[in-house]
Simulated assay, not measured.
Amino acid sequence: MTQKLLLMAAGGTGGHMFPAQALAEEMLRRGWRVKLSTDARGARYTGGFPHMTEITQVSSGTFARGGLLAKALVAPKIAGGVASMAMAMRRDRPDVVIGFGGYPSIPALGAATLLGLPRMLHEQNGVLGRVNQLFATRVHHVACGVWPTELPEGANGIHVGNPVRAAVRERAAAAYIPPGDYPMSVLVMGGSQGARILSDVVPGAIAALPPEIRGHLRVSHQARDEDSARVSEFYAAQGITADVQPFFHDVPARMSEAQLVISRAGASSVADISVIGRPSILIPLAAAIRDEQTANARGLVEAGAAVLIPESALDTASLSEQIASVLSQAQGATQMAHAALDAGVPNATDRLVALVEHLAEEETE
């Protein structure tokens, strides 16, 4: 029996790539071949993908950046990408094509649409991204990470949740140690776009905590390269133990040890927080065009698992007050951790796999 082939297409952010990685891990385990089509930015996130994943870089472009000339060259670039992808698909026909969003997914989805191949989307956020918006009514299914997701009329949306990587699943529902008068951990995550304001506000908010809380804290703080020296120096000057890095390769381990997570509300971060089950303070990215991060946070906030602070209301005093509120109430923090677990979808990968396999079977019937 011939091996089935899944072609995944994803743009160059962790939000798109982490769910793709989770799906690749499981489809390979089930005996499928898996190809990933991405761009140079996306290739930076492929280190964690199983080595059997066949990775190709594609030609695509975005109308969102650059001057008039750059924008004028985008359409021919995308058309070239679609044409070359269609030729590749004729040579090695995928059983299913799935797009995870981002401009680099256009060539694969465009070619699959032209050739009439089984195709679907996975949308991580509560609001469709531009590319997924474009293809939502041209695919068989839109697998939604957040529910409800705003969908155009005619799109077939199915709630599957956001798949998390194997390293996160291994820490699912890790025992929560409530805050107390012993060493406590706080994990601060800003994401690739939104780390600057957290680096500006969080250290001061932690320094302003009552001494009986601050004296027990260890902080893991994700900060951009250009901010990490000043953030480290500030924590050191305040006598706060802190590990400041631009990227943590062991986020699941740090999160499972944390009493509190302070984070942007990116889809992958929210999924990790809910699967591991931790209290959180979420600060949606104000620059997000569709305000998708507020939509992402809604489930945890409504469940009583997270405190939401809009970026416009974020300052040292208000954040310090919220941190103190969580870390001074062991029972309340434990309830938040349990509520996060209840809001999570730990089997999101299995649900997405079932959808992929069902789509492949429908095609062969």
Rank of each mutant, 00 (worst) to 15 (best):
E363A: 08
L355V: 13
A173S: 15
G129N: 00
L73C: 12
K71G: 04
P252Q: 11
G332L: 03
R196G: 08
Q329G: 08
G14E: 08
A10I: 11
V160N: 04
A236F: 13
G110T: 06
L5D: 08
Q322A: 14
S60E: 01
L28K: 04
N156H: 14
M189K: 00
G277V: 01
A86W: 00
K77C: 06
L327I: 01
G194N: 01
R230I: 15
A111D: 01
S268C: 13
G299V: 07
M189H: 01
R138M: 04
H141N: 12
R264A: 00
S269G: 15
A208S: 11
R41I: 05
V345Q: 10
F135I: 11
S312A: 15
K4H: 11
T62Q: 08
A253S: 14
H249R: 15
H122F: 07
H141A: 09
R218A: 05
A195C: 02
P246W: 05
E357F: 03
A88V: 12
G67M: 10
E361M: 14
L73T: 08
M27H: 03
G204F: 08
M87I: 12
E153L: 14
A267V: 01
A258W: 02
T149R: 02
L217K: 11
T364M: 13
S232Y: 06
G14R: 03
A167H: 07
T334E: 10
D342C: 07
A22T: 10
A205K: 14
L36F: 07
A24C: 09
H216C: 12
V131L: 01
A166C: 10
A79Y: 03
P179D: 09
A208H: 08
S269D: 10
L23N: 00
A287V: 05
L134Y: 04
E123S: 12
P19H: 02
D39K: 09
G126K: 04
L7H: 06
G157Q: 10
D315F: 03
L69M: 15
T13E: 07
D250I: 14
I240R: 07
A79M: 08
E212N: 04
H51Y: 03
A295N: 12
D181L: 14
P179S: 07
I55D: 01
E150Q: 08
V186Y: 07
V127C: 02
V58R: 12
R30E: 10
S318A: 14
A242F: 05
E311P: 09
